[in-house]
Design a protein around this nucleic acid. Structure first.
Length: 498
RNA sequence: GGCGCCGUAGCCAAGUGGUAAGGCAGAGGUUUGCAAAACCUCCAUUCACCGGUUCGACUCCGGUCGGCGCCUCCA
């Protein structure tokens, strides 16, 4: 078994290889921090989180680098609008981003470089490109000359002629005049930019958009990466330009494998900041458990579009997200199952010889096989579903009169949850906390008070004690009409909001 | 215009040259004072449409229709 990934460079699935055996250098393009992360970002970073976890779980020592782009036109613009320094603004959104990622159970990368802290490396790289004839100074700016790099276009599979036709129409005359080829792109923007100006051999200015990733990735991971990832929208021009810059400067392959995740769509359209049709991760967290978003992301293959659907209320406002609701129910099922497993009494566990169900015993190899095949998360979740069902069977058996279960099965189930946590980032929180939070969130949405419900349950308990089932059922119906479901168990009655 | 992707049950969604994972919804059952949860059983002779290659195609090739993305800031 070995990992195979779809490599954008070749356009097909191929074995994943590393320069040093069992050591993987992974670089993922991080966010430009001028706003909160939206679902598209969440998807992207959950995908690479699963990839990194999978590499680690299957024996790779991974060095995972994900940058923060904190020097950028939009940051400057927004900072100016808000009368804030670019540094303060970006720091705020970096903090918010890190918090969102943590809530999605995304591991913190080993290195999180920022553009603002790598200006010397960027300048050195630009100088090298000028020296090697790949870049030229023009009117205070420095441009990359795409014609100097014969392989330009190899990642996004397009030719300079194609690009020339597309690009030249929309360039302004001044831009056009400064560039030798319409597809040339800026490495260094000359001039003074409020809050973001550095001295350089080419005069004061700041880095262009693409150069920072080349400089930061090569600094932290070396000249050749094992894997470089990002959203599909980065293939061109961002990653194409990174290849040109990096390979132009080193003469070596920049990244052996390029992975790109598909978009999140809304009404069949790409969710993006520029279209304004996005939901931020934190907006969604208000309605749903963050882990439900993570689960939702994993229900679809990473290269396919992930479409977010919603329902509207009478006033035309968004009232819910059915797909995320469904994912949240699966997350509840997962935690409820874990809770049941944990509460199987020791007395019911026997040292008996019993065949171990494959759903329990083969979880590890099943996850391994599924994820090795181009990170097939939907298939991994199918195995998780089988695993959870088998675990519930154990709990059911232990709950019958004189029912016992084999210790080997219980241990396999416990190990299974460990695996889900480490490998998929699922089920790692305290079950009761998650279930309580979900219930509380739904109660709030329905305008229900927990105390009032508990009060009704107490009344009903009294009625039941007196075997007044008519009264008990009336209370059940009354609560059901409000959306509350009651469950009578051996230790009393509990309630949920389905 | 160039490059590329997609079309699988009521819905979501894997898969793929050898006869359709999983989830939701639905039907029946076990259990329950009644419920719920959980579990069990059932639920696509069929993979947009039309041709072709093949012993065999949903899977490969050609075409048609429909939807989308990139080519410009974007995860």
């Amino acid at each position: 078994m070995a990992l195979r990934l779809h490599n954008t460079l070749s356009g097909r699935k191929e074995p994943f290889t590393t320069l040093v055996p069992n050591v993987a250098n992974v670089y993922v393009c991080g966010p430009t921090v001028y706003d909160y992360a939206h679902l598209g970002h969440a998807r992207c970073y959950v995908v690479y989180d699963v990839l990194v976890r999978h590499l680690r779980e299957t024996g790779y020592e991974v060095k995972f680098v994900r940058n923060y782009t904190d020097v950028d036109d939009k940051i400057l613009k927004r900072a100016a609008e808000r009368g804030e320094s670019p540094r303060e603004l970006s720091q705020r959104f970096i903090d918010a981003f890190a918090e969102d990622m943590a809530r999605l159970h995304c591991l913190t990368p080993d290195v999180e470089p920022r553009v603002s802290e790598h200006i010397p490396e960027i300048i050195a790289l630009i100088e090298k490109l000028v020296e090697r004839g790949h870049a030229y100074v023009s009117d205070g700016d420095v441009y990359y000359s795409v014609e100097s790099f014969p392989d330009y276009g190899k990642l996004s599979h397009r030719s300079l002629d194609q690009l020339k036709a597309g690009a030249s129409e929309r360039l302004s005359d001044t831009e056009q005049a400064r560039k030798k080829h319409p597809a040339d792109f800026v490495l260094w923007k000359g001039g003074v930019h409020e809050g973001a100006t550095w001295e350089s051999p080419f005069g004061p200015g700041r880095p262009g958009w693409h150069i920072e990733c080349s400089a930061m990735s090569m600094k932290h991971l070396g000249e050749t990466l094992d894997l470089h990832g990002g959203g599909l929208d980065l293939v061109f021009p961002h990653h194409e330009n990174e290849v040109a810059q990096s390979e132009g400067a080193t003469g070596r392959c920049f990244s052996n494998c390029w992975v790109h995740n598909g978009f999140v769509e809304v009404d069949k359209e790409k969710m993006s900041k520029s279209l304004g049709n996005f939901f931020t991760a934190r907006e969604l967290f208000e309605r749903h458990e963050p882990e439900a978003l993570r689960y939702f992301v994993m229900t679809v293959h990473y290269r396919a579009p992930l479409s977010l659907d919603w329902t509207l209320d009478d006033e035309g406002k968004v009232s819910g997200f059915p797909s995320i609701e469904e994912a949240e129910r699966r997350v509840e099922y997962l935690y409820r199952t874990r809770l049941r497993l944990e509460s199987i009494p020791e007395a019911r566990i026997k040292e008996e010889e019993a065949p171990l169900p494959d759903e329990l015993g083969k979880l590890r190899e099943r996850l391994h096989t599924a994820l090795d095949d181009d990170l097939n998360m939907p298939v991994a979740l199918a195995h998780v579903a089988d695993f959870l069902r088998a675990t519930n069977e154990l709990a059911d058996r232990a709950a019958t009169k004189k029912g016992t279960v084999a210790r080997s099965a219980i241990e396999a189930a416990r190990e299974g949850f460990e695996l889900l946590g480490r490998w998929l980032g699922l089920g790692t929180e305290t079950p009761s906390d998650v279930l309580d939070r979900i219930r509380a969130r739904r109660a709030r949405a329905l305008g229900l008070s927990g105390e009032a419900i508990e009060q009704k349950i107490a009344e009903r308990a009294e009625a039941r004690a007196q075997r007044d089932f008519a009264r008990a059922d009336a209370i059940r119906d009354e609560l059901a009409a409000l959306g509350v479901e009651l469950h009578d168990g051996p230790n009393g009655t509990t309630w949920t909001i389905p």
